[in-house]
Simulated assay, not measured.
Amino acid sequence: MKTIHRPLLILLSAIVILTACSTQQQATGSPTAVTDAVTSRNYTFVATSVFPTEDSRFNPRLLLPNASNLYQLTSRYDVRVTSDSVIAYLPFFGRSYTAPMDPTKGGIKFTSTKFDYKKTQRKSNYEIEITPQDNTEVRSLYLTVSPSGFASLRVLSVNKTPISFNGNVEAN
């Protein structure tokens, strides 16, 4: 019985280690490619996990000591930034204060061609604030990008609670 468990355990450990290594290689990009993409405003933020913001008064699960609000995304959700447009296709989990008339209009989906774009650099990270002028739902997007391409995005909406995403930045 012991001889069967040991090879199975070694095989499973090898699979986990190889999967972690391949995910790490896919996620990181060269610092110059990320810097060039962010500087030229030609990149895509690809969300891999989401942190919905909920009020603990309405969600008793948040009062548990080790409750986690991190949810892994299984589909592709992204924000594409170019010099003349911002296209967002993101999910939304949380409290919405107004319901859309069309049920297919859920989530955070918009295309903006008139927006303010402010980029600052703190230490080695880029902090980007995007404020759409031609969208009445989303107030602003705050994106923090590391030199390796890891990024976090915080979306502030007019009629929804704030929501945060973690992911990667890819050059278009």
Rank of each mutant, 00 (worst) to 15 (best):
T3W: 09
R6D: 06
R6Y: 07
I10F: 00
I17C: 15
L18M: 13
L18N: 14
C21D: 13
T23S: 09
Q24W: 11
Q24R: 11
Q25A: 09
Q25M: 09
Q25R: 14
Q26G: 00
G29W: 00
P31F: 00
V34I: 15
V34P: 06
V34E: 06
T35G: 07
T35A: 08
T39I: 00
N42F: 00
T44W: 01
F45R: 10
F45K: 08
A47H: 03
T48E: 08
V50H: 00
T53M: 06
E54Y: 04
E54N: 12
E54C: 09
R57G: 01
L62Q: 12
L62S: 06
L64I: 08
L64C: 07
P65Y: 02
A67E: 12
A67T: 12
S68A: 10
N69C: 07
N69T: 15
Y71A: 14
L73I: 11
L73E: 06
S75D: 13
Y77H: 15
Y77G: 14
R80K: 15
R80W: 02
R80F: 02
V86D: 06
F93R: 15
G94W: 03
T98M: 11
T98V: 15
M101R: 14
T104H: 02
T104Y: 02
F110T: 11
F115Q: 11
K118N: 10
K118A: 01
R122A: 05
K123N: 07
S124K: 11
S124F: 00
N125C: 02
E127L: 11
E129N: 05
I130V: 06
I130Y: 00
P132Y: 00
D134C: 02
E137M: 13
V138M: 04
S140T: 11
T144Q: 09
V145K: 05
S146P: 04
P147D: 02
S148L: 10
F150L: 14
A151Q: 14
S152Q: 12
L153I: 08
V155L: 04
S157K: 12
K160M: 10
S164K: 07
F165C: 13
N166C: 02
E170M: 08
